[in-house]
Amino acid sequence: MMLWTLFLLFAQFSLLAVGGANSVLPEIHRVVVQELGWMSGARFAELFAIAQAAPGPNVLVVSLIGWHMAGVAGAAVSLLGICLPSSLLSFAVARWWQRVQGSRLALAIERGLAPLTVGLVLAGAGMMLQALAPSTAGLALCGLSALLSWRLRLNPLWLLAAGGLMGMLGWV
């Protein structure tokens, strides 16, 4: 029963994930932590941090949630749930997009989806900041990292290393 629940839950999120799994992270958090009570907000943030630190796609957090709930089978089913529906939809849309590319409709869709995607990703970042209850120094580090990443086009690994070092030193 839990495996079916995991698959259906993440299949729904799959169809909402415009811009990737991180765009629906606030809703995943709300459902998994607040509505279903499967884990605490701190545990959710830990799983998210592990997924972000690991090499691979951002969607790994979903497999960690599934693993937390139902072991290896839960991880596999959750990953299948988040990937399969959106992949099938993307395939169908890509075929349609080839026919309408360059049209006024295609341009309107591109212009509409860009701010939507940015907003969803920012909502995810805001949710993670709230879940971690950051300090003033942590918020300053987050803002500085975002500014440096945007203005200097630094590799994010340098910023992660600097943040990790500051954390080890107890500065944040």
Rank of each mutant, 00 (worst) to 15 (best):
1 M>G: 10
1 M>C: 08
3 L>A: 03
4 W>D: 07
6 L>H: 06
7 F>K: 07
8 L>Q: 15
9 L>F: 11
10 F>W: 09
13 F>M: 14
14 S>E: 14
17 A>M: 11
17 A>T: 06
17 A>K: 10
17 A>N: 01
21 A>G: 06
22 N>A: 08
24 V>R: 06
26 P>I: 02
32 V>F: 05
35 E>Q: 12
37 G>H: 15
40 S>T: 14
41 G>P: 11
42 A>C: 02
45 A>M: 11
45 A>L: 07
48 F>M: 12
48 F>N: 07
51 A>R: 02
51 A>I: 03
51 A>V: 06
55 P>M: 01
55 P>C: 11
58 N>L: 12
59 V>M: 03
59 V>R: 00
61 V>Q: 05
64 L>R: 03
66 G>T: 06
66 G>R: 09
68 H>G: 01
69 M>Y: 03
70 A>V: 02
73 A>G: 04
76 A>Q: 00
76 A>C: 13
76 A>G: 02
77 V>H: 08
79 L>Y: 07
82 I>G: 02
83 C>P: 07
84 L>W: 08
87 S>A: 09
88 L>R: 09
89 L>D: 05
90 S>Q: 09
92 A>Y: 14
93 V>E: 00
94 A>F: 13
95 R>W: 15
98 Q>P: 00
100 V>F: 05
101 Q>A: 10
102 G>W: 14
102 G>C: 12
104 R>C: 10
105 L>R: 10
105 L>T: 03
110 E>N: 05
111 R>N: 03
111 R>L: 05
112 G>Q: 06
116 L>V: 08
117 T>E: 01
119 G>V: 01
120 L>P: 01
120 L>Q: 01
120 L>Y: 05
122 L>N: 07
123 A>V: 11
124 G>D: 02
125 A>V: 14
125 A>Y: 12
127 M>G: 00
130 Q>D: 07
130 Q>E: 13
132 L>I: 10
135 S>P: 04
137 A>C: 13
141 L>I: 12
142 C>G: 08
144 L>I: 04
145 S>R: 00
148 L>S: 00
151 R>Y: 13
151 R>N: 11
152 L>E: 10
152 L>K: 15
153 R>Y: 15
153 R>M: 05
153 R>A: 12
154 L>M: 13
154 L>F: 14
154 L>R: 11
154 L>A: 07
155 N>K: 04
158 W>V: 04
162 A>G: 03
162 A>Q: 02
162 A>I: 10
163 G>D: 09
164 G>Y: 05
166 M>D: 00
167 G>C: 09
167 G>T: 08
170 G>F: 01
172 V>T: 07
172 V>R: 14
